[in-house]
């Protein structure tokens, strides 16, 4: 059975690419365009299995979104993968400190994306 995956990214291109890769592998994709929208979507979709989020976004960035999910939502235990083009340890560490489960470096190849999901979700 496929998973339900929430993707949070302000770039339409990236949302489309994620959706293509994920739905191609049998997952259901729910989309949000920034952190605030992500929080709203999450509140309305209790069945999200994995969250994939960008870092640089308007209104609420990825760090803020992750912190919110970990501290204030009913999805404390939902794995969160961070999308980042920055492979610098500092950015990853900051996302991890906020509570990210893992990360995917853009541009991602679909195989690696699916492998990352497999590593964080049953």
């Amino acid at each position: 059975m496929g998973k339900t995956i929430l993707t949070v990214d302000d770039s339409r291109t990236m949302r489309d690419m994620l959706k293509l890769a994920l739905s191609g592998a049998g997952h259901t994709v729910v989309q949000a365009e920034d952190g605030v929208h992500g929080v709203e979507v999450l509140a309305a979709s209790p069945m999200v299995d994995v969250i994939i989020t960008d870092i640089n976004m308007p209104r609420m960035d990825g760090y803020g979104f992750i912190e919110h999910v970990r501290r204030k939502s009913s999805h404390k235990g939902t794995p969160i993968l961070v999308l980042t083009t920055e492979s610098e340890p500092a950015k990853k560490l900051r996302a991890r400190d906020a509570g990210a489960t893992g990360w995917i470096v853009k541009p991602f190849d679909p195989e690696k994306l699916l492998a990352a999901i497999r590593r964080v979700s049953p």
Binding site: R70, K76, G77, T78, P79, I80, R96, G99, A100, T101, G102, R118, R119, V120, S121, P122
Partner: peptide
């Protein structure tokens, strides 16, 4: 706390 899971 970061939702990692040893089993996985």
């Amino acid at each position: 706390a970061k939702a990692n899971e040893p089993f996985l």
